[in-house]
């Protein structure tokens, strides 16, 4: 590209005043900013001792959970809408005939590969019965890849663990 190309736009930089050219203003401004931050409040959280609290746990997208209904049964009806919506294809459902009269199917197995999940929350949005939800637990870890594939029992236990702190998201007040 030649310097006289029509696509090049030459920009005139703003003229420096005397205060800018003397470097004194920049000197003072730089130093005051630095000192202000030197003594100012720190942002770091001392992680293992202090826990990060998500500002709104009901909006946070962390580990999944499978909700239970009032009788303690899994709410899921194995409709496969979450598995279809999932962009990372991390949900694997095996449906079976329901032993209960109020629905036709229930998930015989329900596994989520947490390593593959991108925590987009589309499964939660797709679910017609509010069975799958994302919690505010963010520090999930494991010693192997197999350990990070959460099955139905694990996901239900996440519900048991978080149901008191985080009620069902469908029950929350709508955002203003």
């Amino acid at each position: 590209m030649k310097p006289d190309d029509k696509d090049i736009v030459w920009i005139q930089e703003p003229e420096l005043g005397y205060s800018g050219r003397s470097y004194v203003r920049l000197f003072v401004e730089g130093l005051t900013t630095t000192i202000k931050h030197l003594v100012g409040p720190k942002q770091t959280i001392e992680s293992p001792e202090q826990r990060y609290q998500p500002p709104d746990p009901l909006l946070y997208r962390g580990v999944h959970r499978l909700n239970r209904d009032e009788q303690g049964r899994v709410k899921c009806v194995a409709c496969f809408l979450c598995a279809t919506a999932c962009p990372a294809h991390c949900i694997d459902i095996v449906a079976a005939e329901s032993p209960w009269p109020d629905r036709e199917k229930y998930p015989e197995s329900f596994t989520i590969d947490e390593l593959r999940c991108i925590f987009c929350g589309m499964c939660e949005e797709a679910c017609p019965v509010d069975a799958i939800e994302l919690t505010s637990l963010y520090d999930l870890s494991g010693k192997s890849r197999e350990e990070m594939i959460f099955d139905k029992e694990k996901l239900l236990s996440v519900y048991d663990q978080t149901k008191d702190a985080e009620p069902m998201r469908s029950k929350r007040e709508p955002l203003p």
């Binding site: 931050h37 030197l38 720190k42």
Partner: peptide
Amino acid sequence: RVAAWIQDRR
């Protein structure tokens, strides 16, 4: 440490 303090870290 000083660099961290200036950047609001610890």
